[in-house]
Design a protein around this nucleic acid. Sequence first.
DNA 1: ATGGCGTACACCGTACGA
Length: 264
Amino acid sequence: MVLATWNVNSIRARLDHVLRYLDERRPADVLCLQELKVDDASFPREPFEERGLHLALAGQRTYNGVAIVATAEIRDVTIGFPHLPGDHPLNAQRRLVAGTVHGVRVISAYLPNGEAVGSEKFAYKLRFFRELRAYLDRFHRPDEPLVLAGDFNVAPEPRDVYDPGAWEDRVLFSPEERRALAHVSAFGLVDCFRRHHPEGGRYSWWDYRGGAFWKNQGLRIDHILATPPLAERCVASDIDVSPRRWKRPSDHAPVWAEFVGPGG
DNA sequence: ATGGCGTACACCGTACGA
């Protein structure tokens, strides 16, 4: 079972890229998408359904929006934090969709950007991370096959940042954000990419500006986090930078992981 | 150096991203 995650920065602007990725690059069994920037009614379902793919959508107009695309039926779909009211501030933005497919509980997540350290949005980001851990604690156990995949908007370690000294106190790499991510991971989650790649200089996001991609000035902020019984069955994982070279790309590249065995 | 680049929505600029 191959699972991939990709912040597409608008599904309508990136539809050709997503289909090309599925058809040519990595025929993922499960594809977690973020930043759809479209409501469910306007999501381009047809090309996915033509390919026999199933969809779990949590769309939103203009901003946010997440989805799971899969080669099998997606069961027990939930949107947002199910234990909080629908009108709770942490549920107002469509950033979480979960479903069970191929024997694995899959959560597609788009964590808040945070704008700047110390801002209102930064506080919201930290609250979101804490609630995400509470959500895992409440509904799941680290001994079940679960994967939390998406755009976390946090680079975990210095080797995940092209210039860690310059980024030390900036949003996406500040100590507070890294602690918030570590707290979520401490539920019992393994970084699948890191399990196979100790090297630095491997990123999943590059600023559109200043030719950052061509200089490989990026950050690794998109992650596939799996519980130990699933992570043990992760035989390969990588970041596919090739779509970032295509015309009119997303600023993020897809990250994938391959799992073998039962429930994978 | 809050700009640089890109998307959406609306309007010919503004909000937001990371």
